[in-house]
Amino acid sequence: MSSYLAILEAYQGEMALALGQTLMMIVISMSVALLIGLPMGTVLYLRTIHFFHSKPLLILSRLVNLYVDIVRSFPFLLFVVSIIPFTRFVLGTSFGTMAAAFPLCFVATANYARMSEQALLDVPRETLELSKSLCATTWQLIFHFLYVEARSGLVLGFTTVTIGMISYSTIMGVVGGGGIGDFAIRYGYQSYEYELMYTTIVVMIVSVVMIQTMGTLLASHLDKRKIF
């Protein structure tokens, strides 16, 4: 136990930096997922319930569906490598934590779009019927009815995607993104410091459990469907 603590003390600066890099990648990618993935998921949901009648909206919803399917089926490592020219074009570099967050944004957006579509599909049809009978506009339907009733599912979906992104971020060392996973491999596995590697894994497990617990607590706080 003391040897583990000694390792932690010895590498605390590097580990703190790696945790900061992971945090940065997650915050950036999940912010983008919330801002773009949620509207995308809403479009996918409205497409599923045959809400769209105009041709431009139908085309848009098909494109969103295609984007989500392609990105989600792409092997992640290949995806990161294949969009390097685009990353360089947008950010001016393909190396570093920001460059690593860039492909993560695409994956987080696609995953959260599908998750939010699933959460919205759990909203009872009666809610749609009510919004229609009250002559709610499309924006009102989304913000006053759908998001209100699906909010706990949306939070749980967000939590799941966040944890998935932590897992994805571990391989971002490929483009010099750093992060806690990269730290465990370089300082632990490749340097034969297995104790450091296992310590880092424990830190990651604790982080994931904390995120999941917070997500579950928030979701159950927001869910008023069953109060006893």
């Binding site: 009102q140 006053h144 009815f145 209100v148």
Partner: peptide, 19 residues
């Protein structure tokens, strides 16, 4: 009934006004 489960009675009744 078609009440929104995540809204209180007050919020449900006020929904048509909000719309």
């Amino acid at each position: 009934f078609n009440l929104l489960q995540n809204l209180t009675v007050r919020q449900n009744v006020g929904l048509p006004l909000k719309v």
